[in-house]
Design a protein around this nucleic acid. Sequence first.
RNA 1: GGAGAGAUGGCUGAGUGGUUGAAAGCGCCUGACUCGAAAUCAGGUAGAAGGGUUUCCUUCUCGUGGGUUCAAAUCCCACUCUCUCCGCCA
Length: 425
Amino acid sequence: MLDPNLIRTKTEFVKKGIANKGVDASIVDEFLKVDEKRKGMIKEIDELRHKRKVLSEEIGKRIANGKDTEETKEEVRNIGKQIKEKEKDFNELNRQFKNILLRIPNIPHSSVPYGKNEIDNRVVKRWGDIKDFDFEPRPHWEIAEKLGIIDFKRAAKISGARFYVLKGMGAKLERALISWMIDLHVEKHGYKEIFPPFLINRDSMIGTGQLPKFEDDMYHCGKDDLFLDPTAEVPVTNLHRDEILKEEDLPIKYVAYTACFRREAGAAGKDTRGIIRVHQFNKVEMVRFVKPEESYKQLEELIDNAEDVLRLLNIPYQLKQMCTGDLGFTAAMKFDPEAYMPAQDRYVEISSCSNFEDFQARRANIRYRTKSGELRYVHTLNGSGLAVGRTMAAILENYQQKDGSVLIPEVLQKYVGTDRITAEN
RNA sequence: GGAGAGAUGGCUGAGUGGUUGAAAGCGCCUGACUCGAAAUCAGGUAGAAGGGUUUCCUUCUCGUGGGUUCAAAUCCCACUCUCUCCGCCA
């Protein structure tokens, strides 16, 4: 959520930022209209309440002095009725006010290159040597099915399309990746491990910005009004919702594994094969709560933490900066590390690292007290470190051998317990 | 799921209808003392919204939402959460 005062005082700046994201900026005018009305009503109601308060106190004094109070009581009763009526209108207006505010996207950082959509994103960095295969590299789903470590057919039987079952060394590799990534971020990068709930309430989903706009993309348990987390960002960021943190505790760095659930509404026909785009996947996520003045330095660190995973796995990757039009609803700046996939000869998003500035902090009411006693909103950041399923796919494709077996990256060998996956093991 | 107890400021914890937005303690901030620190003493210290804008005014907030009343932290109802006991269960 944006600072209402920023919208009021720097209207054109805000509109331009929103427009640069490709969002209709007329929502700002809608906001200003409701805002004016709302302010007027607050004034009216405040004055009435003030009158009531003064008169009520008067009645108290009169009773103490044994004087008559009936006339004043009648007057206050009337004021009470007026207040109640106005409050009804105000509540409706205030609901609108909040709703509009929750639907206005974050505005891009001034340094983010302008662009309409993903086509305008820029590659800012490439790392690693793409292997020269002396055979035609196969896509990960073929490799995996041949090795018997992924089963799409039975997943469809159990759950439906866009699900998969891991078996044997496939399951073990998935589990190994999760453990290794978390250990890496805890031991080398200084994060604290969190294991949060996967079912999330409405307030938390609003806090990080999934609701109210993207309810259709979420799995929802109607009976309990709980949502399946689409990313660990949600539970982990909301860990400190409605809290006041201490300046000396910042930055706070958390790493969490969760399963992630996405309906992928609107992605029909995209990445239909393999495990790139599925309804349930595993992800290790890094989250940071930081002081505003250092959030962009923190973003660089976060990105490097994600890249480190790829470097240690020795998977060639590129880093892409999202243009204004591809930042999404909540981010002010975003970089996506992308892993090279030999079979398709393309780079696939394997992480996404964002600075939300105070956008989420305002929604979730996460503040810190400075040493001088001032209250300020923190900046929140997060990034995948990494998407586990896609990492597995990248390993399968980059480490595949002519005979169909797959080598295990050295850093993972002690977690997997072998240096190679074959059809036999 | 059943029965009971509870939810108050950054924290602990008083407060059962009328200047109580809230005692006390802790913590924190400022000042004094000190070479400096600790201890001690004095003072200050909730948040949000709206208005005025150099220290100002008003309103709201004691889990959430309703209700009673001239007036609610305080009484009533519903809900949420926490704790204890029972049931069920991995």
